[in-house]
């Protein structure tokens, strides 16, 4: 437990520092409206980053989250226009995300295609499919109930924020208090040891991608409601934000180590950064440069911290008191 807290310490400091800096440098940062806006913007990326956390914990990667979100969004848009209520469209959006995740999972776990390639392919296929079935057109005009349920406010709190919190809590629960969650970590930590311990590696891995797809579906519901539009070109750059949130949040790209709490903080940090850059009137072109640099330096510091920790692990093996204990206790 203790090392987990220590791991998150760095990003906590970064969030606080950025918060203080923006409070001072921008008169509007602390406005309630602005803070709520940040939360709203962070909601979608948090939800998708949660799915991405499952995948990365198994030492995989999902590059297709953007197009998956777009495709789900398009499906929601099309079904909403069928006038069959809003329940089925919402459900089908989420399920379609899960289905595409299932395809990713089968390609990777069963057919042993490297995750990078499988999801790179899916990235193109899902985007193409979204464009194809809409003929590249945006779908507009959705029922008010749908827009309220997906992106409205309750007592001035954006509903997407509530969804994000629910997703985060469910994910924390699954990862920490279920067999499935433990298996996710075990597979990421050492796939062969997990297999030889009788864990159904293919099943668990496949489900990690399904979960990631489902979170894209949920993200799509919110996005569609917020924009009141389903765009086949939506979600560009989502994989960047999601992967960045996961990695900045301290999850190891090698898998087996990390937490949803970290991912949440990572998403908040990126959201605050984007918001702050807007408030400070930084050119959107320059923003991309800043975000990219922040991601790379976060990973750099993470690697540095890990290498320090690992070298102390090696030293740990030399501790006479510890290693000798086994024989002294005769």
């Amino acid at each position: 437990m203790f090392h987990k807290i220590a791991d998150r310490f760095g990003i906590g400091i970064a969030i606080v520092a950025l918060f203080i800096f923006l409070s001072i440098s921008s008169p509007h940062f602390l406005d309630i409206a602005n803070l709520l806006n940040i939360l709203l913007q962070v909601a979608i990326s948090t939800i998708i980053a949660v799915g991405m956390t499952f995948v990365i914990l198994t030492s995989g990667i999902d590059l297709s989250v953007g197009p998956l979100t777009a495709f789900s969004s398009v499906i929601i848009g099309l079904t909403l226009h069928l006038d069959i209520g809003i329940g089925i469209p919402i459900l089908s959006g989420v399920l379609v995300g899960g289905l595409l995740g299932l395809i990713n999972g089968i390609l990777i776990a069963k057919l042993k295609i490297p995750a990078f390639i499988a999801t790179l392919g899916m990235m193109s296929v899902a985007r193409g499919a979204a464009l194809f079935i809409t003929n590249g057109q945006t779908i507009h005009m959705f029922p008010t109930e749908f827009r309220f349920i997906s992106a409205g406010n309750i007592m001035s709190i954006p509903i997407p924020v509530i969804y994000a919190l629910i997703v985060v809590m469910i994910a924390i629960f699954i990862l920490n208090y279920t067999k499935f969650g433990r298996y996710i970590y075990a597979i990421g930590g050492n796939k062969e040891a997990a297999r030889l311990s009788g864990i159904n590696v293919k099943f668990v891995e496949t489900w990690a991608y399904i979960i990631c797809g489902i979170t894209c579906g949920i993200g799509a519901v919110i996005l569609t409601g917020r924009l009141n539009a389903a765009q086949p070109i939506a979600g560009i750059g989502y994989e960047l934000d999601a992967i960045a949130a996961v990695i900045i949040g301290g999850t190891s790209l090698n898998g087996g180590e990390g937490s949803i709490g970290g991912t949440l903080m990572g998403a908040i940090l990126i959201g605050m950064l984007r918001n702050g850059l807007n408030l400070l009137n930084v050119s959107p072109f320059l923003q991309q440069i800043v975000i990219g640099a922040v991601i790379v330096s976060a990973v750099f510091f993470d690697q540095y911290r890990r290498s320090k920790k690992d070298s102390s692990a090696v030293k740990g093996l030399n501790r006479p008191a510890e290693a000798m204990g086994s024989t002294k206790s005769y």
Binding site: R182, Y185, A186, G189, N190, E192, A193, A194, L196, G256, E257
Partner: peptide
């Protein structure tokens, strides 16, 4: 290589 998840605790 095959027996342990080194980054996990004894209990796990």
């Amino acid at each position: 290589r095959d027996g342990l998840v080194l980054g996990m605790g004894i209990d796990q």
